[in-house]
Design a protein around this nucleic acid. Structure first.
Length: 562
RNA sequence: UGGGGGAUGGUCUAACGGCAAGACAGCGGACUCUGACUCCGCUUAUCGGGGUUCGAAUCCCUGUCCCCCAGCCA
């Protein structure tokens, strides 16, 4: 499913609700928002939410706000803010003028809290967090009222202002909503609204020493911005009654509707900021943008295109059932994109020398190759051919089965766009390792076609040894070796890291034209996969390529069956 | 054991009381100067049990299983 023909797809349940709200006249226009906490980098799961919120807005000619939910200063930083903005833009979305921060609303939020106190709907509680837990009850037992629950409005006002003034110690007390300690929904058992945190905030500095909690902040921020549909993940379903309670109790002029959808899960990886942070901090990966990480920045560095991520998110759909998407579906989305856009070149991961014994020494010629076999508009290029070549080591096999359409002694193979070549002899070193292939070519087959029309099944890529350029190529595999790394209650997810997730190949050979590659270029190395320059480690001294994804390989599948 | 959600092929998604459809995966085949791409074919599903109905994935009852909630995190 690509972005162009999405009109065929039925509306998901959220888009349906929005369409209904528009047609019923409940709303003239809609407003959505993407509300990340700046405490880490965005990952593929966030991409789903971004595509939903910004996508729905775009489809309805409406706005989607970017709002940083920065109410817990100890964990947040402006470094994350910048990374997140960059990632959202890169994905292809624009919030225009609508960049907000929950911290923009601290004054208003404070005033709302005061209002709640005046209504007798909030109180300052001096229970310690341990005591509060005890008073809260359990899943099966109701809670009991805090002894501070019935303080007078005046006393609460005074205490809250002392909290705000920094006159009270962290943890000594908190502002709580007065709802219902007997509610079967634990979130409604007098939830904390404000806590004391004498922590520097990346935007408000030391202005505040009390910070509002998520449940108090989020609904009011949505309301202040005139959000119509507040889309979030399933685990917030229990929070919805609280979201509604705050807005209802304060009788706000508008009341956004919170709708929950299932978060994205992908197998063989983890999508949790907390866990990704651990991988980064403990050095299991090189950083948030390690190409093995399914962070937006990791995917970008790996070579994924924004379009492929968007079409992936579109393909997984929006529902309420928790689901696990196969990693292969993500890989497919980038293959689909690059298959039509990436120019083809030759690159050899594990080179082995080939001598064309009947080709004149000290001579070479230029042969024409297509940049894209299905798209002539992408033009052609000239590649040098000579007596000494490199081919892929895996394109030779000593005792090859009949179905192996590549080199083995006595077998003829086509060098793509060049000549038909027969392998005569494999030269081995003292360890018995093949170091060189001696072959002869058919001079009549220039370009790759036999004048007598004989069929040659195998076609392989090659490079002229003298002109080939040396490069480092990094091959990536899934970061975890099990399908559900955090499913095991006994073991830590890090126990399942795949030790072979990164393979660095040096001495690889690529076409000289790749010396002019740009950081944003993506290529198909024919018969190998899609590759791009590594945005961090590539430099004028050393060519460094990342393998974005392999090509499908039905031979590997066949061979694997043995 | 309280409350809130969820259950359709191996995996996702659709069908809105009227032929269970599509994608990915898998299998088989065609094509091929990439064992790629493309194309064709095939296998595989309504959680169980009742009920309403001419007709139920859909409505009702009931059971089972899975997820979320007991942070001064979001």
């Amino acid at each position: 499913m690509n972005e162009e023909n999405k009109t065929k797809r039925p509306l998901d349940f959220i888009r349906q609700i929005i369409a209904d709200d528009l047609s019923s006249g409940k709303h003239d226009t809609i407003v959505t928002r993407f509300p990340p906490e700046p405490n880490g980098f965005l990952h593929i799961g966030h991409a789903k939410s971004i595509c939903l919120n910004f996508g729905v807005a775009r489809e309805n000619n409406a706005c989607c706000h970017l709002r940083f939910d920065d109410t817990n200063p100890g964990k947040e930083s402006s470094e994350y803010v910048e990374a997140i903005k960059n990632d959202v833009h890169w994905l292809g979305y624009d919030w225009g003028e609508h960049l907000y921060y929950a911290s923009d609303y601290f004054d208003k939020l404070h005033d709302f809290a005061v209002e709640l106190i005046k209504m007798g709907k909030a109180y300052v509680c001096h229970l310690s967090s341990e005591q509060m837990r005890e008073y809260r009850g359990t899943l099966t037992e109701t809670g009991k009222d805090s002894p501070y629950r019935n303080r007078s409005v005046e006393e609460n006002l005074e205490l809250f202002s002392q909290m705000k003034a920094g006159e009270l110690e962290e943890g000594s007390c908190a502002l709580r909503a007065k709802i219902d300690m007997n509610s079967p929904n634990i979130l409604l058992r007098d939830p904390v609204l404000y806590r004391i945190m004498k922590t520097h905030h990346h935007r408000t500095g030391d202005t505040w020493c009390i910070y509002p909690m998520y449940d108090f902040t989020h609904c009011l921020s949505d309301m202040l911005e005139g959000i119509t549909h507040s889309l979030c993940t399933l685990e917030f379903e229990n929070n919805r009654p609280l979201y509604d309670w705050v807005l209802d109790t304060l009788a706000t002029p508008c009341h956004p509707r919170q709708i929950e959808f299932a978060r994205l899960n992908i197998n063989f990886t983890v999508t949790s900021k907390r866990k990704l942070l651990q991988l980064v901090n403990e050095g299991h990966v090189s950083g948030w943008d390690d190409p093995r990480m399914l962070t937006i920045s990791g995917l970008r560095r790996r070579g994924y295109t924004p379009k492929s991520i968007r079409s992936f998110c579109e393909g997984v759909g929006i529902g309420k059932k928790e689901s696990w998407i196969d990693m292969g579906v993500l890989e497919n989305s980038i293959r689909d994109d690059l298959n039509v856009t990436a120019p083809r070149v030759f690159g050899i991961l594990d080179p082995i020398k080939v001598i064309i014994t009947n080709y004149p020494e000290n001579e070479s010629e230029m042969l024409e190759a297509q940049n894209h076999p299905q798209n002539a508009d992408m033009g052609t290029r000239l590649v040098p051919f000579s007596r000494e070549l490199f081919i892929e080591r895996s394109d030779y096999m000593e005792n090859a089965p009949k179905k192996f359409f590549r080199f083995t002694e006595g077998r003829e193979v086509r060098l793509r766009y060049a000549y038909l070549v027969t392998c005569n002899k494999a030269i081995k070193n003292s360890e018995g390792e093949v170091v060189e292939l001696h072959c002869t070519y058919d001079p009549e087959s220039r370009g790759g076609n036999a004048p007598d029309g004989r069929k040659v099944k195998g076609t392989i890529h090659w490079l002229s040894a003298a002109e080939a350029v040396t490069a480092e190529i990094r091959l990536y595999d899934r970061l975890f070796s099990v399908e559900y790394p955090d499913a095991d209650k006994e073991k830590n997810f890090k126990d399942f890291l795949n030790p072979e997730s990164l393979q660095v190949l040096s001495g690889c050979k690529v076409e000289p034209s790749l010396l002019n590659a740009n950081p944003d270029d993506r290529y198909q190395f024919e018969r190998q996969g899609y590759f791009c320059l590594d945005s961090k480690d590539n430099n004028s001294e050393k060519l460094v390529f990342n393998r974005i994804v392999t090509l499908r390989d039905s031979w590997a599948k066949l061979a694997g069956k043995g």
